[in-house]
Nucleic acid binder design. Sequence first.
DNA 1: AAGTTCGCCAACCGCCGTGCC
DNA 2: CGGCACGGCGGTTGGCGAACT
Length: 293
Amino acid sequence: MVMRKGPWMAEEDEILMDYVKKHGPRDWSSIRSKGLLPRTGKSCRLRWVNKLKPDLKTGCKFSAEEERVVIDLQARFGNKWARIATYLQGRTDNDVKNFWSTRQKRLARILQTSNQTKSQKNNGKAPASRQVTTLEAPRPVSIAMEQSSSSQNQTCQLSYLENPDVIKMVPLPDLMNPGLFSLETNLPQLEFTPTEKPCTDPQPHFPFQLPHPTLDLPLLPENQDLVPELGDSNLMDMFGHQETPGPDRGSHYSVNLPFLGYSDNPATPDSFIDDFPTDMFDYIESLPSSSEW
DNA sequence: AAGTTCGCCAACCGCCGTGCC
DNA sequence: CGGCACGGCGGTTGGCGAACT
């Protein structure tokens, strides 16, 4: 039998669905060996997992909450898409991967654009990599946007992965100020109220509610199994767990830079970036080096 | 209106771990 | 114990439609 590749046809899907109904999602290679489909077992499994499995949120963009979860868990687990996907009902590892990939591309494009703009202003004297270096925040932070009609008046919620109880409200233009990343414990604690982007296919449903804008789980590899899995009865207790930050704990986190951060704008999450004032990046180069902070 | 860019998505590829013989 | 098949996973690519120029 000649192996077929490429897009799946409706008839193939039907056969695959029928097979899974009868035999369950296993023994993928026998689909080929029995002559049911001219597809590899791998291909059949992938098709089932990514498209045919029930309860998948197909054709539904990531909600703000889902974005937040992905960002936080990616900072914790790295590119463990399958693991991250277990925290997002109806999402596959491929979904998460694609979401992240698009996000990274967007960031790269934004940085490149800002570099080009800056280089032109400085007659090409500024090194292209400098802004990226400057933007390496000393603390792991998560940014959430407040919706506002004017980008000038927009504010952000800035929280710290190491201490999610501390939340700063920051005017958007100040977002590039590295001083923001210092953790001042005497700041007032603000209540976090997550916004939910409507999604009808199906309704958004998470295996857990986040007690904080950022998950604060122990990051040490030996503690990673403490991360709650679906259906864990101690879910909330475990998420309530906090570990006292060590002196160099920050280096274990990935940094969610402001423009990596998601937007709470339920209509257009990407507008966070798109709404930046065009001269916003100019401020970056005037920042002192990290050793001066 | 045509060309280009971008975002999204589906699917393939290669690597690795595991279980079986 | 080594080879093999298989499944799982992460990285990558290519197609397509929408938005933009």
